[in-house]
């Protein structure tokens, strides 16, 4: 444990933006990226590549999101980047669900 002035507060991490970025945001973002990948990846000869590749690399996408949220020295930038990615991929997924892509 580090000796920060707050270190006596048990659940101090709940007030840290980085905690929410690395846990909830990383999880949601990685799921949304996986979903949107299935829309723009090439299908391949058997028409399964776009479905299989996101499924397989989902844990790696998550790890990337997680470590990015943890490692970026600037919390503000990390929040901006992840929110932007979420909006871009999320709107793609939403458009597909509403049938706007077909």
């Amino acid at each position: 444990m580090r000796d920060t002035p707050n270190s006596t507060r048990r659940f101090r991490y709940l007030w840290s933006g980085r905690f929410w970025l690395a846990s909830l945001m990383a999880l949601i973002l990685s799921i949304v990226i996986m979903a949107s990948m299935s829309l723009w990846l090439p299908e391949g000869p058997a028409a399964v590549d776009n479905l299989i590749i996101p499924l397989v690399i989902f844990p790696l996408i998550w790890a990337l999101c997680f470590f990015y949220a943890v490692m970026d020295p600037s919390l503000k930038r990390a929040t901006l980047v992840m929110t932007a990615l979420l909006i871009i991929n999320g709107s793609l997924v939403a458009a597909s669900i509403m049938g706007m892509l077909s």
């Binding site: 799921i31 996986m34 979903a35 949107s36 299935s38 829309l39 776009n50 479905l51 996101p54 499924l55 397989v56 989902f58 844990p59 790696l60 998550w62 790890a63 997924v93 597909s96 669900i97 049938g99």
Partner: peptide, 26 residues
Amino acid sequence: VAFTGAFFSFATTLGLPVIAITAFEG
């Protein structure tokens, strides 16, 4: 092993349903 194992756990319980919603109208 961690990443392949996580894949086996999440593929049918999380990944496939999400992809079905996205690309196969649920």
